[in-house]
Design a protein around this nucleic acid. Structure first.
Length: 688
DNA sequence: CTAGGGTTAG
């Protein structure tokens, strides 16, 4: 009988092992049922430990807890199986409760228990006291400093709970420093934003005669990514290939990420394309490498290919691709992704839902953003910033202030400097000058947030838009920090808007000092002088540009049709379809004027008669490109135009009319953002 | 039968 039982138990153990490695709850439950059938009524204790292990590894916490509770005489092994499972799957609180329960039963943790207990203590929210208690217990049980596993876990726990000095001391005093200990130092230094320390630790490991492993290599690439050390990482890449580490998926993933973060999406692509095995992290890293380098279309394409290759949409994947949709102002794509998120049950994930708020906000759909935001089970600083950012985007100052008040009274998440930038921007665009100014004045004393240069830029913009350029200038002069390009740029913009030519000149001179090669500032000054009728001075600025050798990029727009890129310059007559383009523009002009369109000629550069100015702005490159698109691209397809400079005011106004009259969606990507024109409106709500 | 350090996101 006993022999039969032992044989069954051995078989059962094999089935359990198979279920774990196949990550199959179905096989697991079958194994459990078989255990009960075979061994009831007296299930031997080691079988219970097997079952706890089974459910822990399969990440079925309820079943694991039930199996542990059903163990008639739980041992350190069944408890340890439970604790490790909970710690590994990010449930530190149940892990620590089990650890405490085990101690209450008088069971002594062993050298397998402590590493998991430390891991749980490192991740437990708001319980910095637990780690040291586990540490004391490990000392008393004699596992420290001798046991390498236990001391590495303790070390990591101190790093992750912010006790860096203590962690370092533990590391210095370790008698048996192994590669895992060095890796703990390396990875935590990256996490804490000290990438150079990671590199140092790597060379420390080498100097001590240690051999790096895949974890060390990942950490090294992360450090290079964090510090922007492209050439160091490239050299390391060579070494990694020589050692064969690049065959490890995580290593290749970290290389893709490294090249992406160092602004080399192309090199990331080469690594990615060369990978023999990819996982969902690989796809996500490649997607982000494109997205973070302004290649949103490519990023979205990676998502499509990943789905076609059978990748499930994970929370990582969906939040990243939503950010891409936000960057593209791709509302339709974003909506589709929202549906995917709901179907995959990840829409409540804080990253995904914050990305949804961000996407809807950037696409100008504040109502949809609010719906997601107010239904979020929990919110963090990024969620609040996405929501206030959405209000800032369309200049809804009242709502921005209201949600900001909610945030302060709720008290769960403290605002940070980005929140303040958003609320101030909303006030500025929404014309709540007084409220915005008060917020700026009191932010340090009331919220403990020191105004940064971004806030100064906001308040200069705020006062400038309200016509208080002189007050804005006073503030700039009293700033405790050096005014940046954006601060002077805000002042110049306001001066141009309100015709404050003299002050505008001062701002422009400062901009020339800070960024002498930027043609945009010169053009802005020249335009300001021109629109004030000071043609001679405007011409002087242009001449000066020529003398100093600053070239204004000639404005050009392009549009793709049937895989051919058609480029247009202002007053361009060279296109083969020029006759049709001119005829359509003339026709559109008539329809627009009938609908109430008045040309805005403030961007005309030369002293011309009003009529001449009007015909000049009607030959702008973006209008030519649009006419071409309207002629060639079949109805129903949005017309996508790219421009190397910012879209001009008159074209912006005209495109709104045309979108309504023709009933077509027009998308312009200029050098600073996207504009989605639809039904007489633009997604930017005229703020850009 | 049970263990430490790892890659991607808002």
């Amino acid at each position: 009988m006993a022999a039969a039982l032992a044989a069954d138990a051995q078989q059962l153990a094999a089935v359990v092992e198979a279920a774990i490695s196949a990550r199959s709850p179905r096989l697991g439950r079958a194994a459990h049922a078989r255990a009960l059938r075979l061994l009831a009524p007296s299930v031997p204790p080691f079988i219970c430990a097997h079952l706890v292990n089974l459910y822990s590894k399969l990440d079925l916490p309820g079943a694991a807890a039930a199996a542990l509770a059903a163990d008639p005489s739980p041992t350190v092994v069944s408890f340890t199986a439970f604790i490790s499972g909970a710690a590994q799957h990010g449930r530190p609180v149940p892990a620590l409760s089990a650890f405490a329960a085990m101690l209450r039963l008088g069971l002594r943790p062993n050298d397998f228990t402590f590493p998991s207990a430390f891991k749980a203590a490192a991740a437990a929210p708001g319980s910095a006291a637990v780690g040291p208690q586990v540490h004391a217990l490990a000392l008393r049980c004699g596992y420290l400093p001798g046991d390498a596993f236990v001391s590495c876990a303790a070390l990591d726990m101190y790093f992750k709970t912010g006790r860096t000095v203590l962690a370092r001391r533990l590391f210095e005093e370790m008698p048996n420093r192994n590669v895992v200990a060095w890796n703990a130092v390396m990875t935590n230094a990256v996490l804490d934003g000290r990438p150079l320390e990671t590199v140092e630790a790597y060379f420390g490991l080498r100097a001590a005669g240690g051999a790096p492993n895949v974890v060390s290599v990942c950490a090294f690439f992360n450090a290079c990514a964090g510090a922007g050390c492209l050439s160091l990482g490239e050299q390391f890449h060579g070494f990694v290939v020589k050692c064969g580490f690049e065959k490890d998926v995580s290593v290749s993933n970290s290389m893709v990420d490294f090249y992406g973060k160092c602004r080399c999406a192309g090199k990331a692509r080469v690594v990615f394309d060369g990978m023999g095995v990819r996982n969902s992290v690989s796809w996500c890293s490649m997607l982000v490498a494109h997205a973070q380098n302004g290649e949103e279309e490519e990023a979205f394409f990676v998502y499509l290919v990943a789905r076609r290759a059978g990748e499930e949409p994970t929370d990582f994947m969906v939040s990243s691709v939503l950010t891409t949709c936000a960057g593209l102002l791709g509302l339709e794509l974003g909506r589709a992704l929202h549906a995917v998120a709901v179907r995959s049950c990840i829409d409540a994930n804080i990253f995904v839902s914050s990305a949804l708020v961000d996407m809807y906000g950037k696409c100008g759909r504040v109502g949809d953003a609010e719906q997601v935001f107010f239904e979020m089970p929990q919110r963090n600083i990024v969620s609040w910033n996405a929501m206030t950012g959405g209000y800032a985007h369309i200049g809804d100052a009242r709502s921005a202030l209201a949600v900001f008040d909610d945030m302060i009274t709720g008290g769960e998440t403290a605002p940070n400097y980005i929140t303040l930038v958003n609320v101030l921007t909303a006030c500025s665009r929404g014309g709540l000058t007084k409220e915005g100014y008060e917020l700026f004045e009191t932010m340090k004393q009331r919220l403990g947030i020191e105004p940064r240069v971004e806030h100064y830029a906001c308040v200069v913009d705020l006062l400038g838009r309200a016509g208080m350029e002189e007050r804005a200038y006073e503030i700039i002069q009293q700033m405790p920090i050096r005014p940046s390009i954006s601060v002077w740029g805000a002042l110049l913009g306001a001066c141009k808007m309100h015709g404050k030519t003299e002050l505008g000149r001062i701002a422009a001179e400062k901009l020339f000092e800070l960024d002498p090669q930027d043609p945009g500032n010169h053009v802005l000054l020249s335009n300001m002088l021109a629109s004030a009728g000071r043609w001679a001075e405007a011409t002087d600025v242009r001449k000066e540009m020529k003398n100093v050798g600053i070239k204004k990029d000639p404005g050009r727009s392009w549009i793709t049709w049937k895989n051919v890129v058609h480029v247009f310059h202002a007053k361009d007559t060279k296109h083969e379809m020029n006759n049709e383009i001119q005829a359509l523009l003339a026709e559109l002009k008539g329809q627009m004027q009938a609908a109430g369109y008045m040309p805005d000629t403030q961007c005309a550069l030369y002293d011309l008669e009003e009529e001449e100015k009007e015909s000049e702005v009607f030959q702008h490159s973006e209008k030519l490109a649009l006419a071409f698109g309207l002629i060639c691209i079949p109805p129903g397809i949005p017309i996508r135009i790219m421009k190397n400079l910012r879209i001009c005011v008159d074209c912006h106004r005209a495109f709104k009319f045309i979108s309504g009259i023709i009933g077509r969606e027009i998308i312009v990507r200029d050098n600073s953002r996207f504009h989605h024109f639809k039904n007489y409106e633009c997604s930017c709500k005229d703020y850009w």
